[in-house]
Design a protein around this nucleic acid. Sequence first.
DNA 1: TTCCAGGCGTATC
DNA 2: GATACGCATGGA
Length: 267
Amino acid sequence: MDYTVDGKDIILKQPDFDLAQTLDCGQAFRWTALPDGSFEGYYLDSFLHISPESEAGVFRLHNTAERDLLDKWYNYLDLSTDYGELKRRFSEDETLAKACEYAGGIRLLRQDSWEALSSFIISQNNNIPRIKGIIGRLCEHWGGYPSLEDLQGETAESLGFLRSGFRAKYLVDAVRKLSDGTLSLEKIQTLPIDEAEAELRRIKGVGAKVANCTLLFGMYRTEAFPVDVWMKRALERWYPNGLPECVRGVEGIAQQYLFHYIRTAVK
DNA sequence: TTCCAGGCGTATC
DNA sequence: GATACGCATGGA
């Protein structure tokens, strides 16, 4: 990692990183684009305002202590991973080569497991602006993203203010099973991928897609491969006989490039 | 107005 | 095991 401290800010040199492609691509829902091209948002309770500097691949983390970069953002922004190397691997495949060329600044965020699980429960059969709206009301109500403890005792009725529709009862079931010891996210993190998915699917409203999003975005299980309506189209169109070998072990990261590519570049 | 959205539970065969 | 349908809400 290459950075310098500039007063209260940190200047970060980071190739293979684009703010919009990473923070506004449907993997996280608590980032806001500002008119000047910067973004502000949260990891757990930590706030970050980050903006691009004039020089490509250089970013300013506003009012950020060096300790916070090392303890939080280094991990969250997955700065230990060499995406240049990943993209070289992916480029063995013709379609992935185009997808990586099209949006080379995508990174996988290492999000909190509970936030990812609950966010993707809310995401089902829903569009990204409305997902952000529901999560915005959730965070506004609790003064930050609510923990499992915060949500104890909530019911589908008491969560009506979220206007999350039929998903509220799924959130309630997730809170209950994670609070009464039926399930443990800490334990699920350590399980083989198939068992981890099966455990998550014991929650009502958690199927293959939401489980894989939780594993990928909330537990950094890069082999998890969420298939939504967009990825179904991508698979039918480009990979009718399965994924190429070059993505093995990091299918989920390849998925991010393909998702963004088919959703925004291909008509 | 109708269609659709980073799906899933349930009924039915 | 596969397939069809309903589900809350609101933006396009």
